[in-house]
Amino acid sequence: MTTIPESELEFRFFRSGGPGGQNVNKVSTAVQMRFDARNSPSLSEPVRARLMKLAGSRLTLDGVIVISAVRFRTQERNRADAIARLQALVDQASIAPTYRVPTRPTRASKERRLEGKAKRSTIKSGRGRPMQDD
């Protein structure tokens, strides 16, 4: 599990909409966090590639991941929320995908499949209209 040091994170605070009464017009509680994933020394190359792919629309052309947090009324909780969301992305990117190794069916399994098909065919062929004698 890779942890990102806070020295690599850049925060900007701005006023957010939503609940908060008069406070919403005076206090900058919303957080925009920026993390330079392309130039981060704390990420290994495979994790960096997976993280940049996972970031999707949150990734800028410069390789910076931008996360906005406006869910809470306080700056501290929004800041913690943004950090937690980035950490969740990094944790998800740290898991290397397991690739499926293609296998071939055994001869016995092929024979069982064909026997089942043949049996089903005889059952279904017996369901038709009875033959009429002239």
Rank of each mutant, 00 (worst) to 15 (best):
V90I: 15
P5R: 13
T103R: 08
P41G: 07
T60H: 12
R104F: 04
M131C: 11
T60E: 14
S68D: 15
D36W: 03
R113T: 11
L9R: 01
G56W: 03
G56E: 14
P41L: 05
R112W: 06
S109A: 12
T74C: 03
V90S: 02
E8T: 06
P46L: 10
V90F: 03
G128E: 07
V90M: 12
S109N: 01
R48S: 07
A69F: 02
V90K: 04
R112T: 08
K124P: 13
D91C: 03
G56L: 02
M1Y: 05
Q75C: 05
R15P: 02
Q87N: 10
I83G: 03
E8M: 02
P5S: 15
F72E: 15
P97G: 05
R104V: 10
I65A: 01
R113I: 07
F72L: 06
K117L: 10
S68M: 06
Q32K: 15
E10Q: 10
Q87C: 02
R48D: 11
L51K: 06
T98P: 00
V24N: 11
F13Y: 12
R113V: 03
T60Y: 08
P41R: 03
Q22M: 12
V66D: 06
R71A: 05
G18M: 13
L61F: 03
R71V: 10
R107C: 04
F13I: 08
Q132N: 11
L114M: 14
T3I: 11
R71H: 15
V31M: 08
A69T: 02
Y99I: 11
F72M: 09
G126N: 10
A84G: 09
R79E: 09
A82I: 06
K110W: 00
A108F: 01
E76M: 04
A55C: 13
A118Q: 14
D62V: 03
K53E: 15
D62L: 05
S28D: 12
L51M: 14
F11S: 11
L114E: 11
D36Q: 08
S16F: 01
T2G: 04
S42M: 01
S121H: 11
